[in-house]
Design a protein around this nucleic acid. Sequence first.
DNA 1: TCGTTTTCTGACCGTATGGTCAAGGTTGAG
DNA 2: CTCAACCTTGACCATACGGTCAGAAAACGA
Lengths: 218, 218
Amino acid sequence: MSGNQRQSKRIQTRRENERLILEAAEKVFAEAGYGGATMQLIADMAGLPKANLHYYFATKEELYRTVVARIFEIWLHAAESFDNAPGPVEGIGAYIDAKMEISRRHPFGSKVWASEVMHGAPVIQDYLETTLREWTDGRIGAIQRWIDDGLMDPVDPRHLLYMLWATTQHYADFGHQIETLNGGAALDAGQWAGATETVKRIILRGIGAREIRPDLAK
Amino acid sequence: MSGNQRQSKRIQTRRENERLILEAAEKVFAEAGYGGATMQLIADMAGLPKANLHYYFATKEELYRTVVARIFEIWLHAAESFDNAPGPVEGIGAYIDAKMEISRRHPFGSKVWASEVMHGAPVIQDYLETTLREWTDGRIGAIQRWIDDGLMDPVDPRHLLYMLWATTQHYADFGHQIETLNGGAALDAGQWAGATETVKRIILRGIGAREIRPDLAK
DNA sequence: TCGTTTTCTGACCGTATGGTCAAGGTTGAG
DNA sequence: CTCAACCTTGACCATACGGTCAGAAAACGA
């Protein structure tokens, strides 16, 4: 209860409002698209007057950029699960787990990202050409090393990555379709686990991923 | 050169204009989203005055509905390749071929469909609940029969279908990202073939699909 | 307490959009 | 040729949107 770390009320309010706005914006951009989203709708959902949004974010595009950048951060963080794995079973398995978890917990963010890329990545083209390309090249190298080490079949690493992205993100981006085909109900915890297991199993078996067996190592 | 099948000029012009409008609309809706698309932009791309669009399609929404319905037709047609296949190798293989071909030849349509579903399917919810659900249930039955006949591993057919949709449509919907990671160039014919083969191989192997061997049949 | 900085907000503005309309042009059957 | 049905289009309209702004309110340092 002491005064340690007490934030000034100004900073506290600023953070809280920015959070409210960004969460509302993420949802509205995801559900209506950039063109269909209106500042008024975002303001209403955040519980703030529209003019207040423009106080924190000068323009609609700036707000959108901030939303997309935050999503990219989450994406990058999940990508770390790929690293430092001894083989494809651990690395790709953990990556699928992480990306399925993102689809489940951040469906709006995933949709905003998908929408952005589908429309030609007008605001994050530079991310694609720098950070994403570097990350991709690095992971391609890792996969190739696993292939060379005989830990999996020789599969084009690039297309394998695309498959991983596609299958995991599908559960967020096409969640509405999946929900409809599920009788109108969202997937429950067990169904999410089943989806994750099925995806992991098909892909790991499909690439002929082999467990590392230390007893066979020289 | 005879007059057989000569269309009256009126009908001819009507068809041509509707085609021009629908093609332009598909592209604009795909690139800008429903909210971002404007009738003026579509009109310019079709080479017609805006008022003329409203003569053929009363409202923006009606034009959009028509575009989406056309895409669904293509989708359904490709789905036929699943049928009458003796086993998963032929059925799923042909389906992947067909869907990859759609992604390649109709990227705009695929994006419009994806966008529509991502936004909660406001105009095609009835399709999802009727035609798509029936088609899906039928295919789930076919897959289950293959499993029962020992032609593939016991895999949840539902998630397998989602994987097929996700991986194939990804090449259209996320084509811009793939292009960027491909050094800024669209996939050439060889790369498309490589993608198709990789997807087919990983999935068919992943589900343990076995060729039918007539010599082993009773 | 006082003055300054930051935050908040209703009212307002210019513009772009979906849609309308009336008048003129074109086509084709009788 | 005639006339009705159909097609085309520039000009127009109401609305909704992103963005602005002046002034009130709150927070803060001294």
